[in-house]
Design a binder for these strands. Structure first.
Lengths: 175, 175
DNA sequence: ATCAACTGATTGACGTGTCAGTCATATTCC
DNA sequence: GGAATATGACTGACACGTCAATCAGTTGAT
């Protein structure tokens, strides 16, 4: 969980002050470390709650949500992949596991016989309904309620800035 | 921390209990979503750079860093596990893979014959040295330089607030 | 109509992480 | 000293994700 790949700055060559070679200061690294560890903790705390309350992983939830939002609770596999921003093979593997658990069903596509249509089973629908309110509540408790309105605004500000920088090719979002 | 875990739902005033059923607003969910997606993007962008520049995963780097910081580049396996905050089995598996790649070596412990001492090999040391500066530079480029001083401060503020909240839950179930 | 190129989806191999043991050695208590 | 217990580390089974390959079906050029 904890990403320790940030620590141990003790032996930094502070001599090089060239612009592009500049390295983060100790304090900046501390901020980075706190940031990356906190987000990881938050993510895993939420995953643990979701699992405990509904037996679903975040990935399961993402798939069920996309299916639930779709008309007829039925989506082409490729569409599903782009909707939740996954690679096809990942989706294929995950759908196999979810199918084995009876959460979804695969059907042949009428318009393109290569295609697969993914359908929400009654079991899958029930699992999603059971999961959704507690999950949203957990998000509120662990994230929203932990922050003041100002802090929430700061989060939006910071994420936008980070995206602008690293999201060189920030397409329609992933995950 | 003790009083926090004792604070139970039954002892809460009515207003708070009503509040506990409220769900996040659409805007709050958007903020959450942006937050979680951006951190994930940042994490994976950094991992990709580390991998490309040094052939190491963030996990590899964490292990090598802890070993590098240790006296004689040699640490007891259990100490290593707590240092980087991993479960023992995870570390054991990962060390097996790193040993196969020649990055580390396992030796018998002199003081406790159940124990194992993990040693940095020359190969591992070289890989770590090759990885460090580019990795820190990537952190600066993708995180530090993307944010203003005010924003960096806001990050610290927000992470502290999140930790204070979720720490209530994770304190019980950690390690 | 045919063949090459493309596309939708799955598969296999492999690295990774978790959980529940297992085994050998240390420690504790009588 | 010797049984009960605790500890350090490893293992096996399994879920998960990525990459490269595969396969069947579709499209496009000639």
């Amino acid at each position: 969980m904890i990403d320790a790949s940030i620590r141990g700055v003790s032996a930094l060559p502070t001599a090089t002050r060239t612009r592009s070679r500049r390295l983060p200061t100790k304090q900046q690294l501390d901020t980075w470390r706190a940031f990356i560890e906190t987000t990881e903790e938050l993510r895993s705390a939420l995953a643990a709650r979701l699992q405990a309350e509904s037996g679903l992983s975040p990935s399961d939830y993402a798939v069920l949500l996309a299916l639930h939002d779709a008309a007829d609770h039925c989506v082409r596999s490729s569409v599903l992949a782009t909707t939740i921003g996954w690679q096809r093979s990942r989706l294929s593997h995950h759908l196999g596991r979810m199918e084995r658990r009876g959460l979804i069903d695969r059907q042949e596509c009428s318009t393109d016989s290569r295609g697969a249509e993914i359908v929400l089973t009654p079991t899958g629908h029930a699992a999603f309904r059971r999961a959704t309110v507690p999950h949203l509540r957990a998000i509120r408790e662990l994230f929203v309620d932990a922050l003041s309105p100002d802090q929430l605004e700061a989060v939006q500000d910071v994420t936008a800035a980070l995206r602008a920088r690293s999201g060189v090719c920030s397409a329609a979002g992933r995950h």
